[in-house]
């Protein structure tokens, strides 16, 4: 995280040090230090970039967002989400080729839109010979938004919804409770639109998913949640033979649906506690020094 408090007012402190009587100097120093610490602890989370795993969601009134190149996306901030090979027992699991995906998200009072963009020089949309695999991308949410499932396709007691798009089969909505348990919903309620643009190394895939906020049925994530919404991403490069567990995945991130942009409550709480603790320590220490000097 970048340094974020006001710069250290070294000179005024030194001047104060040289012109004041001892005990006054100590008190003043203590006050200044305490003030600075309070300012910096409170300022840090407000001034800094958002927390590393937060992906901002723009609240918009009307949506022109369904298509990858829709105008509405120009206003929506993007997050660079790093990807790495998923731990998996399938052959060549550590041979993945996509390293990052750009994620944008926007919410109307009816739908959530998620736009994913990543670099892939080849447009692999065909799986119609034995050796061909299609490019694909997935977004994963917990079914029960109040707890965070295991990142690898959830767990038996803590399942995940997966929005899946592949160049050869189109969109699927999946339910999974652990690796190998993925099952498609019969009637997908997720829409996806995809486009591949550019050429060579700069060519990119862009896929926009959207779904209504209300859970359309049991076992589907309620996107109207007031809490933060955990979310994770996966990308497959078909021409590299990527499929199944051979995929580039993110860690869990979250959409901050619980309120303002300052991050989740626990983080603010931690900062506040840390600030109070530092102030207390400095105060006690200064008081000790003051007493010691006074006794001289």
């Amino acid at each position: 995280m970048p340094a974020s408090g006001p710069s250290w007012p070294r000179r005024s402190v030194l001047r104060g040090w040289s012109t004041m009587p001892d005990h006054r100097r100590t008190i003043t120093l203590t006050a200044v230090l305490a003030g600075l610490i309070v300012v910096s602890t409170v300022a840090a989370p407000m001034v800094s970039a958002r927390p590393a795993h937060e992906i901002p969601v723009s609240e918009v009134s009307t949506a022109d967002l369904a298509e990858p190149d829709a105008d509405g996306w120009a206003e929506v901030p993007a997050s660079d989400v790093p990807l790495s090979s998923a731990p998996s027992s399938v052959p060549n699991a550590d041979d993945t080729s996509i390293e990052t995906v750009d994620v944008q998200a926007a919410r109307t009072d009816q739908r959530l839109y998620v736009r994913l963009e990543w670099q892939d020089a080849t447009r692999d949309t065909n799986a119609s010979t034995p050796r061909q695999f299609a490019d694909a991308v997935a977004v994963q949410f917990p079914v029960n938004t109040s707890s965070r499932p295991p990142i690898a396709m959830g767990g038996p007691d803590n399942r995940v919804n997966v929005w899946y798009w592949s160049g050869s089969t189109g969109t699927q909505e999946l339910l999974a409770g652990g690796a190998g348990s993925t099952t498609p919903f019969q009637n997908p309620t997720v829409q996806a639109n995809a486009s591949h643009s550019g050429t060579g190394g700069n060519a990119t895939w862009t896929v926009v998913y959207s779904r209504q906020l209300d859970a359309p049925s049991e076992n589907r994530t309620d996107l109207r949640t007031d809490g933060d919404l955990d979310v994770a991403f996966a990308v497959w490069n078909g021409s590299n033979g990527e499929r199944s567990g051979q995929k580039a995945v993110s860690e869990w991130h979250y959409y901050p649906f619980s309120g303002g942009p300052q991050g989740p409550p626990y983080e603010t709480l931690l900062w506040t506690l840390a600030g109070i603790a530092i102030v207390a320590v400095v105060g006690v220490t200064s008081f000790g020094i003051y007493r010691t000097r006074g006794a001289e």
Binding site: V90, P91, A127, P130, T182, R243, S244
Partner: peptide
């Protein structure tokens, strides 16, 4: 789901 690990994993190439 068409991953074809069986196709490559059979030494007799008898999954298609």
């Amino acid at each position: 789901r068409g991953y074809r690990y069986c196709v490559e994993g059979c030494p007799y190439k008898k999954v298609y």
